[in-house]
């Protein structure tokens, strides 16, 4: 019993106590630096779900996740399958796709700002060259979230690809050969019989981590749009409340909502996929 004490202490100090403090803040109207504060029960949560800005942020985040998760996972799988079969150029492709993971998104966002600029950017130059109207990727409110999602995909792709490559490498060569001898002539059969089922654990991990990072979208919004109408997302709303407006109590309740969503999502996916995944 005595030996677990340091670990328990660390666990309490780092995870448990901050969570309790957060929960405590969330039921008060505390503002950072305020001299007095009062207990207001679940008023913050009621207010959040009645707040059209927060609800829009929630909806935008969900739309963002719905684009980023499937595309970020399956495109990464497709690239991993292509890269896996390269012999000499494999290292090059791995590095090329992994670079965005190492690059700071805030710094890269300026590059995207240039690329997508309506008059200066090469993307719009290409679009107008084909005879279309320039697209306001970063000004048209209805395009903001899809644009963010594409940048988000660009960022998770390399990491997911590396994870899938690791998963592919772990599949025994014998299984690929067995299925060929068993009569699978076309690649789709081989993929469905061996590769896809054997990638189960990897896929589960990739889906869960991609979901979490999708719900955590923040930097691109903060840098490229500053949360302009149409690009409100959960974490940005939270940041505004907590750091710009100093509504600590309200921000704490938003944080709890955010944590609950991520937790439910991760646990739900894990439980659902665990039944299908073979280890």
């Amino acid at each position: 019993m005595f030996f677990v004490f340091p670990a328990v202490l660390l666990l309490l100090a780092i995870y448990i106590i901050p969570m309790i403090v957060l929960a405590a803040f969330s039921v008060t109207d505390y503002q950072l630096g305020a001299l007095s504060t009062s207990f207001i029960g679940l008023e913050n949560f009621r207010k959040a779900f009645a707040d059209p800005v927060f609800m829009r942020a929630l909806l935008n985040t969900v739309i963002y996740a719905v684009i980023v998760i499937p595309v970020g996972v399956f495109l990464a799988l497709g690239i991993a399958l292509l890269v896996y079969n390269r012999k000499r150029s494999r290292a090059f492709w791995e590095i090329a796709y992994f670079l965005p993971v190492t690059a700071t998104l805030v710094a890269m966002a300026t590059v995207f700002q240039f690329l997508l600029h309506p008059s200066l950017g090469p993307v719009n130059a290409a679009i107008t060259w084909f005879g279309f109207e320039p697209v306001g990727f970063l000004s048209n409110p209805s395009l903001l979230i899809p644009t963010m999602a594409i940048i988000g995909i660009w960022q998770v792709l390399g990491f997911n690809m590396v994870l899938f490559l690791a998963g592919l490498t772990a599949i025994s060569k014998d299984l690929h050969e067995a299925v060929r001898i068993d009569g699978a002539k076309n690649p789709v059969d081989r993929f469905l019989t061996v590769t896809w089922p054997m990638l189960g654990p990897t896929t589960m991990f990739v889906v869960v981590t991609t979901s979490i990072s999708a719900f955590k979208v923040f930097e691109t919004v903060a840098v490229l749009t500053k949360g302009r109408s149409g690009s409100e997302v959960l974490l940005y709303a939270l940041y505004l409340e907590g750091f710009e407006y100093s509504n600590t109590g309200y921000a704490a309740s938003l944080t709890l909502i955010f944590l609950a969503i991520v937790l439910i999502l991760s646990i739900g996916q894990t439980l659902h996929m665990d039944r299908k995944v073979h280890y």
């Binding site: 014998d174 067995a178 299925v179 068993d182 009569g183 002539k185 061996v194 089922p197």
Partner: peptide, 29 residues
């Protein structure tokens, strides 16, 4: 192609499909 040679092979590692039941393993060919 190996699939068209109509041969069967037993591997040292057995190479059973781990996600399938025994029934599905045997049924695969």
């Amino acid at each position: 192609d190996p699939a068209d040679r109509n041969l069967a092979m037993v591997f040292q590692s057995y190479a059973l499909y781990p996600h399938m039941t025994v029934r599905d393993n045997i049924a695969t060919p």
